[in-house]
Simulated scan of single mutants.
Amino acid sequence: MSTTTPIPSTMKAVRMHENGGPDVIKYEEISTPILSSPSQILVAVKYSGINFIESYFRSGLYPTQQPYTFGREATGEVVAVGDDAAVKFQIGDKVAFLEPGAFAEYMVLDTTANHRIFKLPAKVDLKSIAGALLQGLTAYTFIHEAYEVKAGDDILITAPAGGVGSLFVQLCKLRHANVIGVTSTASKVELAKQLGCDHVIVSSDEDVASRVLEITNNKGVEGAFDGVGKDSFEFTFKSMARKGTFVSYGNASGPVPPLNLLTLSAKNMKIARPTLFGYVATPDEFNKYTGELVDLITQGKLKVNISQTYPLKDYKYATIALESKESTGKLVLEI
Rank of each mutant, 00 (worst) to 15 (best):
M1C: 10
P6I: 08
I7Y: 02
S9G: 11
M11Q: 15
V14W: 07
R15Y: 07
E18L: 06
E18H: 12
E18S: 12
V24Q: 00
V24S: 12
K26V: 14
Y27T: 03
E28H: 01
E28A: 11
P33C: 11
P33V: 05
L35M: 10
S36G: 15
Q40L: 04
A44N: 15
G49Y: 03
G49L: 06
N51W: 03
I53M: 07
S55D: 07
S55H: 10
Q66P: 00
R72A: 11
T75E: 05
T75L: 02
G76S: 08
G76P: 07
A86W: 00
V87M: 11
V87N: 15
K88S: 13
F89G: 09
F89C: 10
F89D: 04
G92M: 03
D93W: 08
V95I: 15
A96D: 10
A102F: 08
M107G: 00
V108C: 06
L109N: 01
T111R: 08
R116Q: 11
I117L: 13
K119H: 08
P121S: 12
Q135G: 10
G136C: 07
T141Q: 04
E145M: 11
E148S: 12
A151N: 13
A151D: 10
D153A: 03
I157D: 01
T158Y: 10
T158C: 12
G163N: 04
V164A: 13
L167W: 02
Q170A: 02
C172R: 02
G181V: 03
G181K: 03
T183W: 00
S184E: 00
S187I: 00
V189I: 05
K193E: 13
C197F: 07
D198M: 01
H199K: 09
V202H: 03
S203W: 07
S203T: 06
S203D: 03
S203Y: 03
D205T: 15
V208M: 06
V208D: 05
V208P: 12
R211N: 09
R211H: 04
E214R: 13
E214L: 10
G220E: 08
V221S: 00
V221T: 02
F225L: 11
V228W: 07
V228P: 06
E234V: 12
M240T: 06
F246D: 14
G250K: 02
S253T: 08
P255R: 07
P258I: 12
L259W: 01
K270T: 13
P283Y: 04
F286R: 00
F286P: 00
N287E: 14
K288V: 04
Y289G: 01
L293E: 08
L296H: 04
G300M: 07
L302V: 01
K303E: 04
V304G: 07
S307R: 06
Q308H: 10
K316G: 07
Y317L: 06
E323F: 04
I335R: 01
